[in-house]
């Protein structure tokens, strides 16, 4: 087994990097792949809560780097998905506690034991980002269909190209198909046109993403979640399958479509 190292990044904060990392990790585990997710956001640890593993942390990434524990001891095995492991970030340190070469060393040790190593990058373009991409074979750039996150994604893609890690592949997250249809939100085609990189996934805005993080059970594990399905599709594409992209109508449920029919036939009040 030789793992592929995949870094999930975005430039802008709050676009869904951590959610994407957790869900893709679960999606890959559901395909029977052996996956380890590393939280590279030192000081702002979050991947653990999204995965529901916050109560099981003993050691973290910085403990490994500084030799306080063995790599194995910092790896937390997920109970619901036995093929999935997490290495959490340290919460009380900053980005300078880890260097790009530390990331190379750690991923090198893990490569033989996993199919995929996912690295959740912090926001920004500084040290934390450099750490996160140091070992990447592949980079996924997460953006929302909104001007500031697309602009930041473009900056990140430029930096990835300069580091010969790019251009990466694009995840358009939190898209609202009804707004796209009305011409009031950038479509995935618009975003792909602007950024000129390949698309690997389109994830609809979906309440189940929030309710899933509330419970610490990523939406990818929920059969009924639309966003969960979109993340599982990304996992399948990473695993080499050809999966068609959801069309505008499929990303919306039958009930929502009916609701739209009714609401468009009467003037709304707000």
């Amino acid at each position: 087994m030789t793992a592929r190292v995949i870094t999930i990044t975005s430039g802008k904060g709050g676009v869904g990097k951590t959610t994407a990392t957790a869900n893709i990790a679960v999606g890959l585990a559901l395909l029977g792949k052996k996956v380890i997710a590393i939280d590279a956001d030192i000081g702002l640890r979050n991947l653990d809560v999204i995965l529901g593993l916050e109560n099981r942390i003993v050691y973290d990434l910085v403990d490994v780097v500084e030799g306080r524990c063995k790599l194995r001891q910092a790896m937390i095995k997920h109970k619901a998905f036995p093929e999935l492991y997490l290495i959490p970030a340290a919460q009380t340190r900053d980005k300078t506690a880890v260097s790009p070469s530390d990331m190379l060393t750690i991923t090198k040790k893990l490569r033989d034991d996993f199919d995929f190593i996912l690295i959740d990058s912090p926001a920004g373009i500084e040290r934390g980002f450099r750490n996160a991409i140091a070992a990447a074979d592949d980079v996924l750039v997460v953006t929302n269909p909104e001007v500031s996150s697309v602009r930041d994604a473009d900056r990140i893609i430029g930096l990835l190209e300069a580091e010969e890690k790019g251009p990466g592949r694009l995840i358009v997250n939190r898209i609202k198909m009804d707004m796209v249809r009305r011409g009031e939100m950038l479509s995935m085609d618009d975003v792909v046109d602007i950024l000129a990189i390949k698309l690997i996934g389109v994830v609809p805005e979906d309440e189940t993403v929030l309710t899933s993080s509330n419970r610490g059970e990523p939406a990818a594990g929920n059969e009924k979640s639309k966003a969960g399905q979109a993340f599982r599709n990304i996992a399948r594409r990473l695993a080499g399958e050809e999966v068609p992209f959801m069309s505008l109508d499929h990303a919306e449920g039958v009930l929502q479509r009916l609701a739209r029919l009714f609401s468009s036939s009467m003037p709304s009040t707000g």
Binding site: V147, V150, R151, D154, V180, E184, D193
Partner: peptide, 22 residues
């Protein structure tokens, strides 16, 4: 939508302009 340009189109044009300069 009357005569107003859909905001997505405006967003796309503004982004394409700003990214060239960025």
């Amino acid at each position: 939508r009357g005569n107003t340009t859909p905001s997505a189109k405006v967003a796309k044009e503004r982004l394409q302009f700003v990214l060239v300069h960025d």
